[in-house]
């Protein structure tokens, strides 16, 4: 058990270093400065909703945007071939990706929320983490099945539409039925806005994450087992 924990921590540390080396932190410093300027420039009444949209569509969804490039780079560097022959579990690989990307999301979300004058930071952090987990897991599932960046970008468009459009409409109250508050993207958005979500909605969101986690682990394992056209 202790060995597995140490392995996971090493993996997580490696992922964090990997993201730092390829400029993720620098990028999000720049984007956070830019978003902060935007939040300062807009009228006070718009700040909260704008910050919620920015948090949900960027730091929370960064896994969906970057996962294709991360996995493809690992494939081209043959890192996934080494993973296939180590004792590492697919679940550890997936959790490491989710947690390392969520860390950036949570820091950026906290800064933007503070600038926008949010008081309910805890629900915001939970909502951002849940949204980040959903988007990162979707990103991993798609990334394991593609062979080029353009394929990844195209394949994630439907996920972006399903994820973003209802949540943004939900902010503006365009949709208002109880069913809307059960939709996982809307649950995350409610929490990012500092509202208390429906318990059933929260349960449904956690169930969705558990399901996506299973699918992501299977997809990663399949990707590891099919290296260079050879099935291990």
């Amino acid at each position: 058990m202790l060995t597995i924990d140490k392995r996971f921590i090493n993996l997580l540390r490696w992922d964090l270093r990997f993201q730092a080396r390829y400029g993720f932190y620098l990028l999000y410093v720049l984007l956070t400065v830019f978003y902060t300027l935007v939040l300062f420039a807009i009228p006070g009444s718009w700040k909260e909703k704008t910050a919620a949209m920015l948090i949900f569509s960027d730091p929370a969804a960064m896994g969906l945007f970057f996962m294709g490039a991360i996995v493809l780079l690992e494939k081209s560097q043959k890192v996934t071939s080494y993973f296939a022959i180590t004792p590492m579990k697919a679940r550890e690989y997936v959790w490491s990706k989710v947690l390392s990307l969520s860390a950036i999301s949570l820091v950026v979300a906290t800064i933007l929320a503070t600038v926008a004058g949010y008081t309910a930071i805890f629900p915001l952090l939970v909502g951002t983490f849940l949204a980040s987990a959903i988007f990162t897991l979707c990103g991993i599932i798609v990334a394991t099945k593609i062979s080029s960046l353009n394929q990844f970008i195209l394949a994630t468009v439907p996920i972006e539409i399903i994820g973003f459009v209802p949540a943004i409409l939900h902010i503006f109250g365009v949709t208002g039925s109880i069913a809307d508050r059960l939709y996982p993207a809307n649950v995350c958005m409610d929490m990012i806005m500092g509202d208390r979500p429906f318990a059933a909605g929260l349960l449904l969101t956690v169930a969705l994450i558990a399901l996506l986690l299973q699918v992501a682990c299977r997809s990663v394992l399949k990707m590891w087992q099919e290296q260079g056209g050879v099935k291990l």
Partner: peptide, 15 residues
């Protein structure tokens, strides 16, 4: 220098 940095830069460049 690789596709990952490229994706990060795309985000910045689109600004």
């Amino acid at each position: 220098s690789n596709k990952l940095e490229g994706m990060a830069l795309t985000k910045c460049a689109s600004l």
